[in-house]
């Protein structure tokens, strides 16, 4: 499986990254080089191996339903790039 420039642009957008046209060629070839590393994965016989998502065989711990957090809105918003009275602001979104 090998990527072309168009696919690379699409993947970049999916990840909200922009690639200048001037770097596109190089990005595509770098990504294809990396993907060539993965090529032999398909040849490995994994039989009925269970996909392993976690290194440990544990189950999810459950938290008691209690309010433990205090209001730190001011501290949090002090480090935000752009805020209104008490909102985070982004350029107008058209729905």
């Amino acid at each position: 499986m090998s990527l072309d420039n168009k696919q690379v642009k699409e993947i970049a957008y999916l990840a909200r990254l922009s690639i200048e046209d001037t770097e596109l060629e190089q990005s595509t070839s770098e990504l294809n080089n990396i993907l060539s590393l993965m090529a032999d994965l398909s040849e490995i016989d994994t039989g009925d191996a269970e996909p392993m998502a976690h290194p440990l065989h544990m189950s999810q711990r459950l938290r008691e339903d209690e309010v433990t957090e205090e209001n730190l809105a001011e501290e949090f918003q002090a480090i935000a790039p752009k805020t209104g009275k008490s909102h985070f602001l982004v350029p107008t979104v058209i729905e």
Binding site: R63, E66, V67, T68, E69, N71, A73, K85, S86
Partner: peptide, 20 residues
């Protein structure tokens, strides 16, 4: 009472971002 993955309150109608 609290969020699904955190201990913040779920009460409706609070001032913006004070329960995040």
């Amino acid at each position: 009472k609290s969020k699904i993955f955190s201990g913040a309150s779920t009460e409706f109608g609070a001032k913006a971002n004070t329960q995040a």
